[in-house]
Every structure is written in C-alpha cells, then in structure tokens.
Design a protein around this nucleic acid. Structure first.
Lengths: 209, 209
DNA sequence: GCTAAAGTTGGGCAACTGCCCAGGGCGAAT
DNA sequence: ATTCGCCCTGGGCAGTTGCCCAACTTTAGC
C-alpha cells in the first residue's frame, strides 16, 4: 500500500510524532515572525531541526502544515479560555475573565498576529476558511451560553454583541500600535453591562484596574 | 545628475503619469486578489499592460508600489467619508452615514481586504506602519471632531469608542462569512447612542482614563 | 536473526522571484 | 538636424520557492 499521500498520517512512531510536533511548533512561530506566505519549506525544516524533505513527508503541502498549526493553536487557547470562563460564577467574574484575557493579547502579541494572519489566509483557502469558522463559532457559542447562564442577556443577543466586540477588540489590539488595554476595556464593559441595568437599577461600577 | 533612484519621481510626461496610475491601480487590485506578498513584478506589469522593467523605473521597489497604492486608496475613501459626514447635520444623520458606509463594506469586500492586508503588511514595514497610522489617526480625529460638534459626547471618549468599534466592525465584516449588516448595525448604534442618554438622564459615569 | 514498513536524508528540478541594465525610441529645445 | 533627457523594452542574473525522489537508516513484528 503506497498510501498515495501521507496527507494526515498520524505518525506511528514516537520519533515521527515528535518531528510532527516540532514542525507544527515551528510553523506557528514562523507565521507570526514572517507572515503566513513568508514561511518556506527550508525555514520550517531548519527551525524544527529536521531535514527539508520531512516537511513533505509528514504533510501534504506547506499550506496544510500551516493550516494545521494555526488551527491547533486556536483550539488550544479556546480550550484554555473555556476552563477559565467556567470557573467564573458571577457576571462580574466572567467579564473580568474576558478583560484579563484581552490584556494578555497586547499590541503585537504573537497570538493576535497568528489570528489575523490565519483569517486572512483563509480568504483564499476554502478549506481553512470553514475550519476556522467552526472554531470561531464554537468560541462564540461558548460565550453566549455562559452569559445566558449568568443571566446577563438573552443568548442570541449576547452572542451577536460579543462576537462583534471580541473580533473587533482583537484586531484593534493587534493592529493599533499605541493602544493600551485601558482604551479598549471600557468599550467592552459598556457592551456587556447594559443588559443588567435593564433587570434592575444597578449602580455597581467596575473597579478600575 | 543621475537622480540616484527615481524613488518617487512625479513623472514629468503625460504618458509617464498614466503608466504610474495604471501600475497603482493594478497594485490595489492584486493586493486584494492574491494578497500583499503574493503580488509580483511581472503580475503588476501584465495587469497594467506595460513592460516589466517599468515597475522598477517608476517605483523603487515592489513594496514601495504596494504601499503607495494602499495609502492612496485609503486616503481616497477617508476623503469621501469626510464629505459625507460633513453633510450630516444631526447625530442621527451622522450615525446613518456610518452605518450605510459599513453596509457598503460587505463580506469579503475588496476595500476591507485591502485594509486588513495593508495593516498586516505594516507589521513588518516600519515606514508603512507610521504612514498608515497617520491615515487612521486622521480618520478617527475626523469622527471625534464631528461627533463633538454634534454634541454626542466628549471628543476623547467618542474617539476611543468609535475607533474600536469601526476597526472591529470592519474586521468582523471582512472575515466572518455569513455576517450580515443587520448583525453588526445595532452594536454600533448601541456604542454611539448611550452618550446622549448621559446628557439628559445625567447618570454620572466615571471617566475611564 | 530477518523482513517489511516507517522514517529520514540531501540533492535535484522547473518555475518563479526582485532587481538590473544595455540598448532603443521619442518629443522638445537648440 | 543634432542633441538631450525622459520613457520604455525585454532579456539576464543570482537567488528562492514547493515538491519530488532514490537511496539510506531506524523501528517493529516474527
């Protein structure tokens, strides 16, 4: 069995899996450093410390490797965020989780750049596009569900608002040079809090960070 | 005088200016079609209908041509927007201008893609980065000034809010596949209207700076 | 031990890249 | 009519790209 192409072979050997992992890690780093389309076969091999030929042994193409690396990274941070958000038991705590997460993604933060690079690459790659859309949809559903549980707002409304806000703030933080978290924080707080005011006259203001 | 490099020579001849213009137009198109770093010398020449050598005769480098094209395009739409916004005499009319402008930038709209491509390219090009930042700052100042005139909110507060919102909504529209204007419009409206309620309702909010 | 599969190597290929440049044409001033 | 810049041409250069592949080593099953 020639296995036609080792497109997504899950690596039967320990060493094989290790090399695969090193290539994926190298890909994530390089996307941030030189941009999605600036990553080359030789670069990846050198960064991962393996022979150039291995790139196309473990992955069908450079594009496939980059897509895989981007999706893995995003899936990772969504999972991490999910854990944090589930630990928050009040609307204030949940808002705090979001805000501190945004603090983590500062200025030209690697993760922000990886996000934007990937989304832009997805513009010309239908397969990556749908895969990415799934991750994002998952993230938004997670947010909407949690906010509904906490009684902040109706699920669909919250989802739409939060989706636009988070997308926007990630871009804003990633691309605007001198923008501090302080600029962006009150905007998000404003988006999320009004719904509570409707429930009852709540004067409680968020403490400044 | 060898003129060292014809870096930004303003083309003395009619034909010269025409070729320059065609190259700039081709650049703007190609950035959207194949991505910033996917544009090549030959592509540009073919699209503009001129000999390949002309690209480096009129511009110092391909990068310089792309930067110039992107900045010109952005400057153009900012000017157009400025004219529309100055025609709006009430806060509602101004909001309407913004919302209808966003309607124009739908889904995978060329202009949205050009924006994001350029911002991302600016991440690795300091010169482009500062030039772009200037255009964006100009745009934000324009918005803030106009809203202050219309009595919507204090200038600095409006600037921060609108900046984040517009950045965000452009990305949101550009990258989210099925997003309609209807999803995004109420969010922006919500960001812009509360300030008016503040003036009349006089609910003292803590300034966030 | 032996065999077959999985993994690895580094060179090779055609296609492309940005930029250069010797040379030619053309309009305007002299 | 000659000269002088500007404009234009198309090929050439050295370098890089993605992907392939024949030969090699390592690993797993028996």
């Amino acid at each position: 069995m020639t296995a036609e192409r080792r497109v997504m072979a899950a690596s039967a050997t320990v060493r094989g899996r290790e090399v695969r992992g090193r290539l994926l890690a190298a890909a994530a780093e390089l996307i941030v450093e030189v941009g999605w389309s600036g990553v080359s076969t030789r670069m990846l091999a050198e960064r991962a410390g393996v022979a150039p030929g291995l790139v196309h042994y473990h992955f069908a193409s450079v594009q496939a490797l980059l897509s895989r690396a981007a999706l893995d990274s995003m899936h990772g941070i969504v999972e991490e965020f999910r854990a944090q958000l589930e630990g928050a038991s009040t609307p204030e705590a949940a808002l705090e989780v979001i805000l501190s997460a945004l603090d983590g993604y500062s200025g030209r933060d690697p993760m922000s750049l990886l996000f934007v690079e990937s989304f832009l690459a997805a513009t010309r790659d239908e397969e990556l596009h749908t895969a990415l859309a799934a991750v994002v949809a998952d993230f938004r559903a997670l947010l909407a569900r949690r906010f509904a549980q906490l009684g902040v707002a109706a699920p669909d409304q919250t989802a739409a608002v939060v989706a636009a806000a988070v997308d926007g703030l990630v871009l804003h933080r990633a691309l605007s040079p001198g923008t501090s978290a302080a600029t962006v924080t009150p905007v998000l707080a404003r988006l999320l809090t009004p719904a509570r005011r409707q429930q009852r006259g709540n004067r409680k203001d968020r403490a400044s960070r």
